[in-house]
Simulated assay, not measured.
Amino acid sequence: MSESGGAMDEVFSEHPGTPESAVWLKGQLLRIASALYPDRRPVVVREWTDPVRLRDPEPVGHRFLFLVCAGGDDRPSSPGFDDVLHAFTAEGWTTHRRSSDHPGESRAQARREDFEVRVYEGSGPGLLTFTGWTPVVYTGRQSGRPRFTLSTVRGVLCDDCHGWGVCLLCGGRAYSGGSGGYGRCVCAGNNAGPGRCVECGGSGALTAKATSWVRKRYGLPDPDGTGSFPQVPAEGGYDSGTSALVAVSERPCACGEFRCFWRNRLTDADDRTLALFAGICQGCAAQRAYAFELPRRRLAADQVEDLP
């Protein structure tokens, strides 16, 4: 992986070169968010692309992604999470609610054909966000679909197979060509299994041992594994959790990568309101955390989240 993974993204806007799939997905996310919060304007926090590579450094295609903040700074006027999923199904999406390891947080996956959306709602009450991605748009000959791209893998993308999960020497067939006919590929006789990527064992993501080495290269510690929000100094100057999320989404990790699965919590602590963000970098799997002091707002007693 490049030492400046964040430089790989190509921020785009709607222009004649933008594919119809990206325009359609963006419109869907904004439509659903507007239906949930008719009195608010949803915010496109960030839009970017993931490169899709085979063996050569030059990308063969891209996947287009959007992070949309639908709202949620004040839960009393917010819909329930079931209503959020119903809004997707009303637009023709299939939804699957996923269990959360973190109390007060909700998450789900929505699919429609080859489009996918990660739906997340923070605790305390936190923000409601949609992260959507298109199918891969190829610049030349149509290829298959990689298991993951930089923004969709839960971990760090394998830098050997680029998320495909197969050996790129044989294309997953376990046989390679030669003057003497077809011979067995090197990937057929090791623990990865026939046709699978040797580096990641077919998962498409680096192993925990490999990502630990990446973090050490940048002088970063391993995550504590507790899933809690680390206590960090609070920053000021933001009027809402949404504006804080916009700021967080633009900040790269020490490894240079901006892609991160951000969790969120809104909490009352020490007579002030804090918006907390925590996530695992998708470039090196380092733990990242930020805290922002917001204008004082009294949360309902049953919504208060105590800091760990």
Rank of each mutant, 00 (worst) to 15 (best):
F66N: 10
C161P: 10
A244G: 09
T134L: 08
T49Q: 06
A7W: 03
R118C: 01
E257G: 01
R288C: 04
G155I: 09
S4Q: 13
R111W: 09
C281W: 05
H15V: 15
R46N: 11
E250S: 14
R196A: 13
T242P: 10
R259M: 10
N190P: 00
R196C: 09
P135C: 12
G124K: 10
G256V: 09
V248C: 05
N191H: 08
D160P: 00
A275P: 00
D50N: 15
L128Y: 07
G144W: 04
V43N: 05
P38D: 07
F292T: 04
F148A: 09
G181H: 01
V11P: 09
V43F: 01
G144P: 03
V186H: 05
S179T: 04
S77I: 13
M1N: 13
C161F: 12
S249A: 14
E20M: 11
A87Y: 05
D222R: 11
E10K: 12
G237V: 03
F148G: 04
R46V: 13
V198S: 07
A90W: 03
S78F: 01
F81Q: 03
E91Q: 04
T267N: 08
Q231W: 05
A278E: 02
W213P: 00
P223V: 13
G155D: 09
A300R: 15
S203C: 04
G201C: 09
H62I: 00
E14K: 13
R263Y: 03
A70F: 11
G71M: 08
F64M: 06
A70D: 12
L128H: 07
A289R: 05
C69G: 07
P308M: 09
D239A: 15
G178L: 02
P233F: 14
E250Y: 00
G193K: 08
L294N: 06
V153D: 01
W93H: 00
V52H: 08
S13Q: 12
N191V: 06
V119E: 06
R63F: 07
V84S: 13
G171K: 08
R265G: 02
G126F: 04
R53Q: 11
P221C: 15
C158Y: 00
E293P: 01
